[in-house]
Design a protein around this nucleic acid. Sequence first.
DNA 1: TGCATTGTTGGTAAAAATACCAACAAACCA
DNA 2: TGGTTTGTTGGTATTTTTACCAACAATGCA
Lengths: 106, 106
Amino acid sequence: MITIEEAEIRSKIIKAMAHPVRLMIIECLKDSTRSFSEIFDLFALDKSTVSKHLLVLKEAGIVSSKKSGTDMIYTLEVPCVTDFFGCVTAVIENNVRRQQVCLCKR
Amino acid sequence: MITIEEAEIRSKIIKAMAHPVRLMIIECLKDSTRSFSEIFDLFALDKSTVSKHLLVLKEAGIVSSKKSGTDMIYTLEVPCVTDFFGCVTAVIENNVRRQQVCLCKR
DNA sequence: TGCATTGTTGGTAAAAATACCAACAAACCA
DNA sequence: TGGTTTGTTGGTATTTTTACCAACAATGCA
C-alpha cells in the first residue's frame, strides 16, 4: 500500500494537471515547444493568469522554461503524461456507455 | 487541438484523482473490491469525509458501489487509471534527478 | 418492536485555487 | 538613454474544496 506522504507527492503532480487550461497547455506542448505568447494566444485570459498556470506546471516538474531572446520557451518535460489522456478518455467512454444503459433500462 | 469543453470534461476526471486520500482509495481498490469499512479503516478521518471522497470518485465514474448485506462494496471501474501512476512516478524521478543536477552545479 | 450498526446527507468554517488588475523586471531597439 | 515589448510577481476578491459535527436513512438483530 502507498503511504500518505507518497500519495501527497503524487497528488501535487496530478493536481497540476487538473485544470482545463493546464490540460490544453500540455496538449499544445505535446508535439513541440512553444513560446509564452503562442500559449497565451490560445486563451481569452489575462497574461498573468496564463503565466501562473505555467508556473503550476513548472513547479510540478511537468514543463520547463528557458529564455530565448525576447521569448520564454516552454517544453513538456515528461511527455508520458499525455499517454494518460487515453485512459481519461476510457473513463469518459465508460461513463457514456453506462448512462446509455440506464437510459435503455428505465 | 483539444477544445475547452473537452478539456473541462477531462479535468473533472483528473480532479477526482487529485487528492491524497482518493489516490490511496484507488490504490487499495487496484487488486480487489473493498467495503466501505475497509476503506474507512485506512484513514484517521470522519466517516462522512471518507464517504464524500468516495462520492467524488463515483461521480467521476472512477469507482462504482453496490450494497451487499450490511456493507457497501466499492469497485474500481477503470483500472487503467493506476497505469498512470507509473508516469507520475517518472515525473517524480525526473524532479529528483533535476534537483541533484542543480545541487551539483551550484 | 426497540436498538445497534452502517453509511449518507446537510450545514458550516477553514483552507486552497483561480482570475483579475496593477506594478514591476528584463531585454530589445530607436 | 528613453520607450516598447515580454513576461512575472503582489495583492485581492471570488469560488471551490475540504473536514468536521450532527442528523438522518436503511439494514440487521434480540
